[in-house]
Computed example of a mutant assay.
Amino acid sequence: MCRWLAYSGGALQPSTVILDAQHSLVAQALNSPLGKETVNGDGFGFGWYPEGQPGAEPAYFHSIEPAWNDQNLRELTRSVRSPLFFSHVRAAIAPPIQQTNCHPFRYKNWMFMHNGALADFSRVKRDLTFAVDPSLYPHILGTTDSEVLFYLALTLGLMDDPVAAMGAAIRMVEMVGHDHGIAFPMQGTVAITDGVTIWAFRYSSQGRTRSLFHSVDVETLREMYPDAERLKLFAPGDRLVVSEPLNDLPGVFQEVPESTVAIVAASGYRHEPFLTDSA
């Protein structure tokens, strides 16, 4: 489907993880061992919050070029520093390859990205899109199921309670899907942020969701790998959520369990059960 990463911590040069890691996001665009599709070359996106402005409106850069072949991505991620950023490489299933279909999506100070799919989206698209609040509908610029899911969650209160709103949006997807005879309507991992906190969801109707991991505490990693020079690039409060690990070192990344939301805040990680009741 796609691959993504989310970073939160001290202001960091995004190229450190998007370009320079052993299994960086750009490397995963070419070869994704844990992805449903090995190659994710149908465009990419990079969204970031300005240093010193937590919760401000983020900037973003979208391109339909393969991530490994875009010099602008290299220039940009090596030129800015950001305390919180998202990046996403896309493997298009059905919607066309165009900039408005590239993640992350943005509304005010919020960003959203998704790896997965709403099954048989063409059959449920009308019902779900018409459930979006009329004031939000004009902001839907692309044709993806992911963008509709974002605006559906905004309609259902994302800015007040992201976990409850995301749960309500997915339950609506499942209800509409079941009404159309779709057995497993929802698949995917989702990242949402307001520029301060990151909420990372792993859920599918079938209970077989795409992979999701987050990094272990940097100080713990330095104790585990005292000779690892690369760890010196990161401060104690730096945290990553990723579709798949960025290196082969055992214990650096911890898998997020099925039907879980991982909440990334200044205090660290917190896991909560997500939609564990039967649909």
Rank of each mutant, 00 (worst) to 15 (best):
F213M: 09
L84R: 08
I18W: 02
K36W: 08
P104I: 11
S146K: 02
V173S: 10
N109W: 02
Q254C: 12
G181R: 01
A266I: 00
W48R: 08
S146L: 07
A265Y: 00
A6W: 05
H62M: 02
N40L: 07
P14E: 05
E258P: 13
E37P: 00
S63Q: 04
L141K: 15
H114Y: 12
R230N: 13
T197V: 14
E219Q: 14
W110K: 09
R126C: 09
P95C: 09
D194C: 09
G55Y: 01
P95W: 02
A235F: 01
A119E: 15
D20P: 06
R222M: 09
V264H: 01
H214D: 10
A91V: 00
V132S: 09
P50F: 01
E272Q: 15
A228G: 00
A164H: 03
G207P: 14
G35V: 08
P250V: 06
D161M: 07
P257Q: 09
G47W: 01
V89Q: 04
T193V: 07
G177C: 11
F105G: 13
D145V: 05
T276Y: 02
D277V: 11
L154H: 03
L246Q: 08
S204C: 14
A67V: 08
A279Q: 07
L231M: 06
N69A: 15
E255S: 13
A262Y: 03
R171H: 10
E147M: 07
A228N: 14
L128R: 11
D145M: 04
N31M: 11
S122Y: 11
W4T: 02
Q13P: 00
R202F: 09
K232V: 02
F130H: 14
G188W: 07
A228K: 05
I18P: 09
Y49S: 11
M111A: 13
L84Q: 06
D238A: 06
E65G: 00
G43A: 06
R123T: 10
S267H: 07
G52D: 06
L30V: 06
A164W: 00
L233D: 13
G116W: 01
A67P: 07
A265W: 00
D248S: 13
T16Y: 01
F61G: 07
S267T: 13
Y137A: 15
W68I: 01
S146P: 10
R81W: 02
P58D: 07
S63K: 04
V196C: 13
S243Q: 04
V89R: 02
